[in-house]
Design a protein around this nucleic acid. Structure first.
Lengths: 201, 201
DNA sequence: CCGTGGTAACTTACTCCCGAGTCATATCCC
DNA sequence: GGGATATGACTCGGGAGTAAGTTACCACGG
């Protein structure tokens, strides 16, 4: 490949690289992805990525910010709809299924267990996590308030359970690509109803 | 350090290495742990580990088997007690808290997201996961049967939710080392009661 | 209209480091 | 001597990051 410019402006090239990086990082995970992999997938060379993003983590942060803007933004959007209880849960999940339908890799990118736990990446992850904690505590808090429970540790634990339930249901859906968002939302509604029906001894 | 024997028999040395490996792998994760780290922690040299376990994965498999024997064994033990519904959940969690109290690192070892997804390690992980799936489907199946739901995908998804709820509660507890097993079991019972009370709109 | 120099876009071909895995050798005990 | 236990000092590969050079475009003076 010749060394010279291809006439692609920096902003445009950066956007293209970020999009490719979202996909590659999301599909294979941070640890298993090399900068050379992303460069190859984008049809460019490694040093260009370093010139534009500085480091592997810099690239990852850019991809993470782009993905989180979509996903956390969607969660905040549905939260603002004002549904409560089961309805709020189902509406939130339904919105997520629709957003992920044509770019499912964004999910694994944002919740990548192999991402570094320190440095700028960790800071960005913590920032998004904090937004989710606020939203989750809100919904779960209503539930605890109904029974007069004000223990902060109970709230913290139950919020964690809810977040992981959310993650698990989305993860299950991603593992079953034949299931439509509509069918999956219906399944969630059904399962919540079973659990919350109080039919357990 | 002199090269000669220290008079430690192979079986004894292997047991010691496995114990140390459980701790180091469990505390830092598979990916972030080098064989040299384990050797240093055990007070021996790297080639001895290779002589006894063949490879990093071989060592990891040995540690995994030892840890899973304890943890999955405990889950199977409590499952055999015959409790149902919330009681079964609480009994299972309670047993786990007690087992983990003096060696909490075993948990992160068995559920390490940075462990390889292929090769012998993956096979061993899948084997233990399968045992958990059987147990989880059992408990969750009762719940669905009560409302006449026989959809296998509903069972699969709800089982996944339960397993992750379990993992989340244990993980939360590990992040709050001041909470005693007794207090944590009480918290779980309380939270289950809230959710299953059907008090949601 | 035609250089011509400056700048932005881009690549080849490296260095460097870290961790997995190995080889040759040393010590101890029977 | 011989086998089991042990280690220092390597090789090797892969991925992060870099140095130096190449090509295209564009603004300007002639």
């Amino acid at each position: 490949m010749a060394a010279g410019t291809k006439g692609v402006a920096r902003a445009e090239r950066e956007a293209q690289i970020v999009e490719v990086a979202c996909r590659v990082f999301g599909e294979h995970g941070y640890a298993a992805t090399s900068v050379a992999d992303v460069a190859a997938a984008a049809g460019i060379s490694k040093p260009l990525i370093y010139q534009y993003f500085g480091s592997k983590d810099g690239l990852y942060v850019a991809a993470l910010r782009a993905a989180a803007a979509v996903l956390v933004g969607e969660i905040e959007r549905t939260a603002a709809l004002g549904a409560v209880g089961i309805d709020r849960a189902v509406v939130t999940l339904d919105g997520m299924f629709r957003v992920l339908a044509d770019r499912p890799w964004l999910w694994r990118l944002v919740f990548d267990a192999t991402a570094p736990r320190e440095g700028e990446v960790a800071a960005v992850l913590a920032e998004h996590e904090q937004r989710l904690v606020v939203l989750g505590s809100d919904g779960v808090g209503d539930l605890l308030a109904l029974v007069g429970n004000t223990d902060p540790d109970d709230l913290s634990a139950l919020r964690a359970v809810w977040e992981n339930t959310f993650r698990t249901l989305v993860g299950w859906w991603l593992d079953h690509p034949d299931v439509t968002p509509e069918a999956m939302s219906a399944r969630c509604q059904r399962l919540f109803a079973v659990v919350l029906s109080g039919s357990v001894p």
